[in-house]
Write a protein that binds this DNA or RNA. Structure first.
Lengths: 243, 243
DNA sequence: CCCGATCCACTTGTCTGACAATACCTCCGC
DNA sequence: GCGGAGGTATTGTCAGACAAGTGGATCGGG
């Protein structure tokens, strides 16, 4: 509801496509992304690709130093903890402000609805956690963007880039406890519409901490099954496994 | 202590110089900054200037839409309130984490010392609030960067760009209640070294709220002396006064 | 005289092509 | 087997160019 009818510029389009590719793990973590490759892949000039890469670096979805090739970062356990701690701070503040107004945005409601639908459809089967994760993120983004401060929304967006990346890297399979998530969302919405600032903030923090713990559990299960990678010394070429 | 010995790239240098120019009000708020002008001023190619401008836009120190020329934003009262509200959220979180560690960084101590010196020297005279404001900002930045989360520091840096801008736009003259500021800083340092998380967070928030109120008072005094600009309708071309 | 439409200068978006500087990889000699 | 020299790949930066869009000025009509 912000950029409707805006002319989409070329670097922005490349940026969006690449961002989606990275989050969806189509370009694996740890792999390099050269300007030339991007330029050829999308059929644009190298400066255009360069601009797109720079935006991704600014967003935290790519890392690059000096004259070296950009790499998709491999987020570790500490990154998850750090990301969710900061997200909790920002999103709690956002939900408190939203509760002050006491109005629940329509987009959050529709995101919640599609999440419920997805939860029902994916009852026994678990076909692509992608749509589920996307609906969940849309729910949170809608809430934060409905709150009156555009700068707070920017801070949130800055974190959510990496959050999406680590959801993709760690999860990428199934979203556990889907029913609980839906219930927690509903609780937040109720607190907001009731104008209960304290409750909205507390529920938001609890919800995010819960999401973090689920991610950490899954991370630990996945990583402990793999050999090594416990010390700080080797993981250089050893971590370039298939992911 | 982060980028020591790093090769400084050309767009980055232009970006830094321009940023400094904007914050120091050498390029007045509301004025336009074209890519060509920047390129000629620094003797670089237009793409280089373009890159620098894009970084400034991402930082919030310039605003630009579609095909229009970038402008230095004119921050109003609501912007100040919003900026300081977000800054309080981020910086309170940072100080709480710093208090958990319980160690006061050296850079904060030296910034505090230079602030005390500057306060003593500027007893009766008020020669350039620039160094004072800079020392104050260095103090806060040192605290936030000493805290363990790099992402939280990034969020803070993103806000501080605009904060510096609005300090320059509103203040630019004298920093009031300098003694109080120094005392509040000391209180925060004491709370951190004592490991009192709650106290550090509370003092930080109070300090930032106080700074905001001083700025708002000064803003109101200055702006009320000017004609008009009270409704939401006219301020379009009426706000392009000399500033 | 005022209002509207057309035109033009300016600015930005993007491309091509190129060169220098730096980093990484390979190969050769010891 | 190991260390250093060279080549290749990649990035940083530039110059010049053209298309597209914006804003203001000019001109004509009412």
């Amino acid at each position: 509801m912000d950029d409707v009818l805006s002319v989409t510029t070329l670097p922005r389009a490349v940026h969006e496509a690449l961002r989606e590719s990275i989050i969806a793990q189509r370009v694996p973590p740890g792999s390099t992304v050269t300007e030339k490759a991007v330029a050829e892949r999308f059929g644009v000039a190298r400066p255009t690709a360069k601009a797109a890469l720079e935006r991704l670096v600014a967003e935290g979805l790519l890392r690059r130093t000096a004259h070296k090739t950009a790499r998709v970062p491999e987020l570790d356990r500490d990154d998850i903890v750090d990301l969710y701690a900061n997200r909790a701070v920002v999103e709690e503040a956002a939900l408190r402000r939203l509760a002050e107004a006491g109005e629940v945005p329509d987009q959050a409601l529709s995101a919640q609805r599609s999440l419920i639908e997805a939860a029902r459809d994916a009852g026994m089967d678990h076909p692509d956690a992608g749509p589920l994760a996307r609906a969940d993120i849309m729910f949170h983004r809608a809430l934060v963007e409905a709150q009156p401060s555009p700068r707070l929304a920017r801070l949130h967006a800055l974190l959510m880039g990496e959050i999406e990346l680590c959801i993709g890297q760690v999860l990428a399979h199934r979203l556990l406890a889907l029913g609980d998530v839906v219930d927690q969302h509903q609780g937040i919405l109720d607190a907001v519409s009731a104008g209960d600032v304290e409750l909205a903030g507390r529920l938001t923090r609890a919800h995010i901490d819960g999401a973090r713990d689920r991610l950490l559990t899954y991370f630990d299960e996945t990583r402990l099954a793999l050999p090594g990678a416990q010390s700080t010394e080797q993981g250089e070429e050893g971590s370039r496994n298939r992911v």
